[in-house]
Computed example of a mutant assay.
Amino acid sequence: MKNITSANYKVTEKIDLESIATYNDFGTSNKKLRKSLKEIRIMLGAFQDTLYAHSKYSVLICIQGMDTAGKDSLIREVFKDFNARGVVVHSFKVPTALELKHDYLWRHYIALPAKGKFGVFNRTHYENVLVTRVHPEYILNENIPGIDKVSDLDQEFWDTRFEQINSFERHLAQNGTIIFKFFLHLSKEEQRQRLLRRLALKRKNWKFSPGDLKERLLWGKYQVCYEEAINKTSKPHAPWFIIPADNKKAARVIVASILLEELTKYKEIKEPELDDKIKANLEIYKKQLESE
Rank of each mutant, 00 (worst) to 15 (best):
residue 126 Y to E: 00
residue 16 D to T: 12
residue 212 D to S: 03
residue 282 L to G: 05
residue 168 F to N: 07
residue 214 K to I: 10
residue 282 L to Y: 03
residue 146 G to P: 13
residue 20 I to R: 06
residue 223 Q to G: 03
residue 12 T to F: 11
residue 97 A to V: 14
residue 136 P to Q: 10
residue 90 H to A: 10
residue 269 I to T: 04
residue 152 D to Y: 14
residue 43 M to V: 15
residue 145 P to Y: 12
residue 69 A to W: 06
residue 57 Y to R: 02
residue 104 Y to N: 01
residue 112 L to W: 00
residue 250 A to D: 03
residue 33 L to Q: 13
residue 178 I to C: 04
residue 100 L to Q: 15
residue 175 N to W: 04
residue 161 R to W: 07
residue 121 F to S: 01
residue 213 L to N: 11
residue 31 K to C: 08
residue 142 E to S: 11
residue 29 S to M: 12
residue 94 V to T: 15
residue 289 L to T: 15
residue 74 L to A: 06
residue 176 G to L: 07
residue 281 N to M: 08
residue 227 E to T: 11
residue 87 V to S: 07
residue 125 H to E: 10
residue 205 N to V: 04
residue 148 D to H: 11
residue 182 F to N: 01
residue 75 I to T: 01
residue 201 L to R: 12
residue 146 G to C: 11
residue 231 N to L: 05
residue 147 I to S: 08
residue 258 I to D: 00
residue 93 K to W: 12
residue 215 E to D: 14
residue 146 G to D: 06
residue 79 F to L: 02
residue 25 D to A: 13
residue 47 F to S: 02
residue 216 R to M: 10
residue 130 L to K: 10
residue 31 K to A: 14
residue 289 L to W: 12
residue 84 A to Q: 12
residue 215 E to K: 04
residue 75 I to N: 01
residue 129 V to M: 05
residue 63 I to E: 00
residue 156 E to G: 07
residue 96 T to W: 06
residue 220 G to E: 02
residue 264 T to A: 12
residue 74 L to N: 12
residue 158 W to I: 01
residue 57 Y to H: 01
residue 107 R to E: 00
residue 28 T to G: 09
residue 43 M to A: 15
residue 144 I to G: 03
residue 71 K to L: 02
residue 238 A to T: 00
residue 251 A to M: 09
residue 128 N to A: 09
residue 81 D to A: 07
residue 175 N to Y: 00
residue 191 Q to A: 03
residue 103 D to C: 04
residue 32 K to M: 09
residue 237 H to Y: 10
